[in-house]
């Protein structure tokens, strides 16, 4: 139903109506004009009609101006430049545009990854170092004490394995030197299961270097191999001993 503007008496708040219509009224002014509209039929009607007029004008603008925007050079230039941009430039732009927390998080992630890589590399190269150090452990007087402490800390399962091995060694090699060798070798799994994995080659090397320890019986070595095998099966995880098995066999 068409509403003729002439039917309503003009309201003195025409400027307030325009200010409210374009959203430039303050909160207080807007609330005040809303209250006014509840009573003023003229303003309420004009506000609705002017909103429709605005929609029409804006639609005309939107239909007309896109052709201008798409045909101007300044819009196209950045797009062309962006296509030629290198990866380095993209990273630079990311760091220049990203918020501070994102930059910090990225830097932290990069450091964490580097640290993880370094740790992994060191971790896998660690057994070789220990192989060289391990033979000296029984030579020290404190070795027994350390072994005792480790024995106490060892899990019941490891203890059981050790006891079984000691019994086996006592029956096959009662000599002091062989018993000592076994004790040394038994100490290895308590240090670390992966260190133990390297022990066979260590024992083999040491038996050729030192005459008294070279008397270690073949059974002791077999026991050690069994121990390695037992340790590997304990937790079902792969061991470096698999890698050393070949070298042990060759020795």
């Amino acid at each position: 139903m068409k509403e003729k503007p002439e039917q309503h008496a003009l309201c003195a708040r025409a400027e307030d109506l325009v200010t409210y219509l374009y959203g430039e009224a303050s909160e207080k002014e807007a609330a005040d004009f809303k209250r006014h509209m509840e009573e003023c039929r003229s303003c309420k009607s004009e506000l609705a009609a002017f909103s429709h007029v605005r929609e029409d004008v804006v639609e005309w603008r939107n239909l007309s101006l896109p052709s201008f925007e798409s045909s101007t050079a300044p819009v196209l230039e950045p797009a062309v430049t962006e296509r030629k941009r290198s990866a380095l430039a993209a990273i630079r732009e990311f760091f220049s545009l990203a918020p501070m927390w994102m930059r910090a998080a990225t830097a932290f992630a990069a450091i964490a990854i580097c640290a993880l890589v370094v740790f992994t590399v060191m971790h896998f190269s660690e057994p070789r170092t220990i192989v060289q150090v391990a033979p000296q452990v029984p030579a020290k007087p404190q070795g027994g004490e350390i072994a005792k402490q480790r024995e106490e800390a060892a899990s019941p399962k490891e203890k059981e394995v050790k006891e079984t091995q000691q019994v086996a060694v006592a029956t096959t090699a009662p000599s002091k030197s062989s018993a000592e060798t076994v004790k040394v070798n038994n100490a290895q799994p308590r240090v670390k299961s992966r260190r133990l994995a390297a022990a066979p080659s260590t024992v083999a090397q040491r038996s050729t270097e030192k005459p008294d320890k070279a008397k270690a019986s073949k059974e002791a070595r077999e026991q050690l191999a069994e121990l390695v095998q037992t340790s590997k099966d304990d937790d079902g995880l792969p061991r470096l001993s698999d890698l050393f098995e070949d070298s042990n066999d060759s020795n």
Binding site: A49, H52, D56
Partner: peptide
């Protein structure tokens, strides 16, 4: 706005 409303009133 008032003049536009009058001209576009029908629409």
């Amino acid at each position: 706005l008032k003049q536009l409303r009058m001209r576009l009133g029908t629409h």
